[in-house]
Design a protein around this nucleic acid. Structure first.
Lengths: 198, 198
DNA sequence: GGCAGGATCTAGCAGCGCTAGATTTCCTAG
DNA sequence: CTAGGAAATCTAGCGCTGCTAGATCCTGCC
């Protein structure tokens, strides 16, 4: 039993080592360059070891994505619930989302961009996605003036996702991130006309 | 001279054949499965022939993207200028954009999603991107109530891009595409509060 | 100490992008 | 109409990829 559990502990540690290393590699050289050989060398094992922990390379990125979405949910929840009122909460959530995407582009890519069979194949990831969606909905719902809150949530999330991906692809002016998110939040929450003359 | 021009003509035809076949292959099996061997076999030549026309596989997708963005610009312009007033123009442009992305997902991916060195390396593509951007700006500018029109344009484009990519990844409710774009356009153009009680 | 059994590695397959060198095809000059 | 040379095209191969079968080594038990 102690023997068995020591083995299991070592195995679990290596499992985490693989995920941590894959994430670091992806953030530094991009997912496209994270190969089984490079990853195996980085953790100082041979490639087949990876397949003892994960079904394939894609599953490793999926696992990183799951860790990432858990982080993201926590970040969003903290930003939203720390704000004094719904308007500030929506703004804080939106900024936190873009900041996370900007600070962890490879993780963001693993979650939302990389072609993945994850979101509907894996068992717990749909729940995580729904939880993240609920964070967005909680933030925008106070501003759904008679509209379907779910549709409004999809609009908000899509708008932020678009800003995140286009900014990462350098298709948006770099210095204007806050201006974009503030303008988006103002219009989506319906505060555009009053403050437009400012 | 007739000889020379016949050769050149045949060469130009094959050039287009490559692009057309690459686009068809991408739309049917996805860019990830469009390999030099498959593409070469589809046009009934050996792989090296491809390299007589394009620098590499990426350049082929870039060329498809350039053709696509020209199409897209025409679609957007037609939608916008055919509308009776700015509000209808913005709505028509937004719907046309999402419809194009939905009908030609591989081309849309080649233009805006696939990692590419295109947009800033190639000579004419930045101009095309700017032209497309100008279409968005022309549609939304009437609703920039004192705000920076360029920022507002980035917000609009990002929001539509997010809806296009998330819808393609099946992360948004399928039947709600029009509801989403209408809600987005209403809020971005500032018509939300008046019609909110509807 | 010797021996299962599990963990790990070596070596290899098929397919990828891409290219050098052989081969074939075509145009031209005599 | 043929011979030669240039241009077009193909064959074959390199180093890389994800992934795996079979050999090897190492660990823990009797």
């Amino acid at each position: 039993m102690p023997t068995q559990s020591r083995r299991e502990r070592a195995r679990a540690e290596r499992h985490e080592l693989i995920l941590r290393t894959a994430r670091e590699l992806a953030e530094s050289i991009g997912w496209g360059a994270v190969t089984t050989r490079r990853l195996a060398e980085a953790i100082d094992y041979s490639q087949p070891v990876l397949y003892g922990h994960f079904e394939n390379m894609n599953a490793i990125a999926d696992a990183v994505a799951i860790q990432g979405i858990e982080e993201l949910i926590a970040v969003l929840r903290y930003a939203r619930t720390s704000a004094p009122d719904p308007a500030a909460g929506l703004s804080a959530l939106a900024k936190a989302y873009l900041e996370y995407a900007s600070n962890h582009p490879a993780v963001y890519e693993a979650i939302f961009v990389r072609p993945t069979d994850l979101e509907f194949a894996s068992s717990d990831s749909p729940l995580l996605l729904k939880t993240a969606f609920a964070e967005f909905q909680a933030a925008i719902e106070p501003f759904a003036a008679g509209e379907d809150p779910e549709t409004l949530t999809e609009v908000l999330w899509s708008a932020l996702h678009g800003q995140a991906t286009l900014a990462h692809a350098r298709r948006l002016r770099p210095g204007q991130r806050d201006a974009r998110v503030e303008l988006l939040v103002a219009r989506l929450s319906g505060k555009n006309s009053p403050t437009s003359a400012k």
